[in-house]
């Protein structure tokens, strides 16, 4: 086990950083989109639930960004003054919602949460101890997210209108969901050094099996082609993004730039080991 960056070679440091950035950026950006549903959900209860989930994801982003701070960065480097082309989230999480397209929100949540569940399972055995230590807390909350999205999918699928909406969302989102499993330049080192013992290709195969089975049970078709045929032009993990990303980035950095700050106000102490033990 490795307890911190100082015990890593340069190659290993780059690998841990790459893994953490994809984890943190995914959580941060997916939450950013979820918050759009606050006060705009189909019911007050749905509003409150999606707000909970968004805050959980922001909390997880904070945990992963905090581990990146051990590598000498601060929040300003990692988010507020980072070049938008340096973000490594999957394109799935940055896509905008059409007005009222709650099916997109729950399908996206389902595809994302199922991926996260598998990825976290693999990271429970990470040789980089600070990652393995934090997985427990994140995984516990993700279980509730998956229940929430599955529950919604089942309810919507009971009507033809709902099922058609789900189908359209799956058709549109599935290729982008595949980018969750795209490799960074450091994938080989990540796997070889057990930062994440399971390769992305294996995780993707498991994910496709789970997702296809569940959605088929709802009467929804899932693409069967090879990932190479389905993947969108922008892959996220390599720094290429859809055009939605730049405007989202401009919006969430707007106040930061307007205030002309060089530090992000902090309200809470940095998460300590004690906070994340479960």
């Amino acid at each position: 086990m490795v307890d911190g960056p100082e015990e890593l070679s340069d190659r290993e440091r780059a690998a841990v950083e790459a893994e953490l950035r994809t984890l943190a950026d995914d959580e941060f950006v997916v939450a950013e989109r979820y918050t759009e549903w606050q006060v705009r959900g189909p019911t007050l209860e749905a509003d409150i639930a999606i707000a909970n989930i968004a805050q959980d994801e922001l909390g997880h982003a904070r945990l992963w960004y905090d581990l990146l701070e051990d590598f000498g960065y601060d929040q300003v480097d990692l988010i507020w003054e980072r070049d938008p082309a340096d973000f490594r989230h999957a394109t799935l999480v940055e896509l905008p919602f059409e007005d009222g397209d709650w099916a997109d929100c729950v399908v996206r949540g389902y595809l994302y949460d199922t991926h996260e569940h598998l990825r976290l399972q693999a990271l429970e055995d990470s040789a980089y101890a600070p990652i393995a230590d934090r997985v427990g807390k994140v995984k516990g909350e993700e279980t509730y997210h998956r229940e929430h999205t599955q529950n919604w999918l089942e309810r919507l699928a009971e009507s033809r209108a709902g099922r058609e909406r789900i189908q359209r969302a799956v058709d549109r989102l599935f290729p982008h969901a595949l980018t969750l499993f795209e490799r960074t330049d450091h994938e080989e080192t990540i796997v070889d050094t057990d930062v994440r013992p399971e390769p992305l290709a294996d995780l993707r195969a498991e994910w496709r099996e789970v997702v296809s089975g569940f959605l088929a049970g709802l009467g929804v078709d899932v693409p069967v082609e090879d990932a190479a045929e389905l993947l969108p032009d922008s892959r996220g993990r390599d720094g290429t993004h859809t055009e939605a990303w730049r405007s989202l980035y401009d919006e969430f950095t707007f106040t930061y730039r307007q205030l002309g700050r060089s530090e992000a106000p902090s309200l809470m102490p940095a998460p300590e080991e004690a906070d994340v033990d479960v």
Binding site: E32, T35, Q38, D47, I48, A51, L58, W80, T255, A264
Partner: peptide
């Protein structure tokens, strides 16, 4: 208040504004 979840200038502020908007919907409920 909702647009200021997005515009909040730090992670902590973003969390706090999101929670606040959520609380208010809860109060409405």
């Amino acid at each position: 208040e909702r647009p200021f979840i997005r515009q909040a200038p730090s992670l902590d502020r973003k969390l706090a504004v999101s929670a606040q908007v959520q609380d208010e919907v809860g109060h409405g409920q």
